[in-house]
């Protein structure tokens, strides 16, 4: 997997977490996986299509998700409230959106679908068809996991640029 495509997602998560949680986030671990994904907490998935295709899972330990929900709503939130799941989806939307903005400004063109809560079925499928990069971030409220699986379609990019294949 191309690290230059992954880097914007790492930078974006780092910046968005710092802004949303009002606290620093550090990368604690990086691994590659090919097996199905096992959720660690509350997870959202965002898929994208175009010159870059794939999906990203943002998975937050419950306390970290709760912290984000409380920071954004500016008040007490119960950990069982649906708004906490919504917070994870919205955070995923911000992280992916900011990274996509950087990649698009570098010439990559692709479309992002709205985020959704990761289902058990999607969990089982995730990783079986492709290799995923998994990053674990540490925050004062718990771990946040970013699972990235994407492919760069060089042919589509060449076609769009009007450059013949060699």
């Amino acid at each position: 997997m191309r690290m230059d495509l992954i880097q914007p997602f790492i930078g974006s998560l780092d910046a968005v977490l710092a802004e949303m949680m009002q606290a620093p986030a550090t990368i604690a671990d990086l691994a590659m996986e090919e097996n199905g994904y096992r959720k660690k907490g509350l997870a959202a998935v965002v898929t994208f299509t175009g010159q870059i295709e794939g999906r990203i899972i943002l998975d937050m330990e419950p306390q970290a998700a709760l912290r984000v929900a409380q920071c954004l709503t500016g008040g007490e939130v119960d950990s069982t409230e649906p708004i906490v799941r919504e917070a994870v989806c919205e955070l995923a939307n911000m992280v992916i959106g900011n990274a996509v903005t950087q990649l698009n400004d570098r010439g990559f063109e692709f479309k992002v679908d709205p985020p959704s809560v990761l289902s058990e079925e999607q969990c089982e499928k995730a990783g079986h068809d492709s290799e995923a990069t998994i990053l674990r971030f540490e925050t004062p409220s718990g771990h946040v996991h970013l699972n990235i699986s994407m492919h760069y379609h060089a042919r589509r990019a060449r076609e769009r640029a009007g450059v013949p294949a060699i």
Binding site: A69, L72, T73, G74, P82, I83, E86, A87, C89, E90, N93, P114
Partner: peptide, 12 residues
């Protein structure tokens, strides 16, 4: 916004 959460945050 399609996100209830984003709407709530903006409403605040």
């Amino acid at each position: 916004d399609d996100s209830v959460f984003a709407r709530k945050s903006l409403a605040k």
